[in-house]
């Protein structure tokens, strides 16, 4: 049967193209990683130093302490984790209601989704003014609330898709067995949705962790997050390459690890559940 099927070889062109694309993906990452451990004297060398003879950690020290990277890191951790917990818990409840009771028909779910596509600039101007009025400007609470709302479409729609593919009959069995609606949600639906909740949490966290625009406008000296620290390196043409790279590594390593871990939920995460992964 199989004998007449020609064995497929991977054509050489295909390998070359894939290799080139991988190089394109990896080049910036490699350069950032190498720059972060390169002594400052190597910056200007011609030809460029592809790998430093004497790797150094001084840039990490400077980035974290001299440029308040550590403070940004801590703020980012506090704000991202808090916003993730809030967004996913509030979003999961809403998603459950939308998926099981079709609450508000299509209008409500579409309204939530549309939040995802509003241009941030339109929200941020009045939000900035209001935050100043009520004293939330440059506070952790202000950032947490803002990030919670800005990630709600992601958590709601990811969980919405997850609940919809879960059979209803399990919760119905729980209702007949003697649970209240809350009981069925808490002791049956939630444990079963746990993998989806974890995936939604990771995507929400990454969204908060990598966000720049809101943080740029809503924070200054107190609640600034890691990405906004990069502003500090703009004015010094080149002198802080090592520090910028070190900070980049500190920021991107955790989110890449998390992202690759929940890779199989990636399609659902990127399309807000419109496509099953």
């Amino acid at each position: 049967m199989a004998s007449w099927v020609r064995p497929r070889r991977i054509p050489i062109v295909r390998i070359v193209v894939i290799a080139l694309f991988l190089a394109f993906v990896l080049a910036p990452l490699y350069w950032v990683a190498i720059t972060s451990i390169k002594p400052s004297d190597d910056y200007l060398a011609v030809p460029p130093v592809w790998f430093p003879d004497a790797p150094t950690m001084v840039h990490y020290e400077a980035a974290l302490f001299a440029y308040r990277g550590l403070q940004g890191l801590i703020n980012s951790i506090i704000i991202s984790i808090s916003a993730t917990i809030l967004s996913v818990s509030v979003g999961t409840l809403m998603a459950y209601s939308l998926a099981r009771f079709n609450t508000g028909g299509q209008h409500l779910s579409f309204w939530v989704l549309s939040q995802r596509f509003l241009p941030p600039i339109a929200i941020i101007l009045p939000l900035f003014l209001n935050y100043r009025l009520v004293g939330l400007q440059d506070t952790h609470v202000g950032m947490i609330v803002a990030y919670t709302v800005f990630t709600l479409p992601v958590s709601v729609w990811m969980m919405f898709a997850y609940f919809r593919q879960m059979p209803r009959s399990l919760e119905e069995a729980a209702l007949v067995d003697g649970c209240t609606r809350w009981g069925a949600l808490w002791s049956v639906a939630m444990p079963l949705a746990a993998p989806g909740i974890v995936a939604a949490a990771v995507f929400t966290f990454i969204a908060c962790w990598t966000e720049f625009f809101f943080a740029l406008v809503l924070t200054s000296r107190n609640a600034f997050t890691l990405p906004t620290v990069f502003r500090a390196f703009l004015s010094f043409q080149g002198a802080q390459y090592g520090e910028a790279s070190a900070l980049a590594i500190v920021s991107l390593v955790p989110s890449i690890i998390l992202g690759v871990l929940v890779q199989k939920h990636l399609v659902r995460g990127l399309t807000l559940g419109a496509v099953r992964g």
Binding site: S169, E172, A173, A174, V176, D177, G183, S187, L192
Partner: peptide
């Protein structure tokens, strides 16, 4: 829950995260 009826579903609707023992006992526990 207040009707005091029991139902067997087409897809069995066993709680996948509970052992057989806990599945059977769930209604009593609730």
């Amino acid at each position: 829950r207040d009707r005091d009826v029991a139902m067997v579903f087409q897809d069995y609707a066993l709680y996948p995260h509970m052992t057989v023992r806990n599945n059977i006992g769930f209604g009593l526990k609730a």
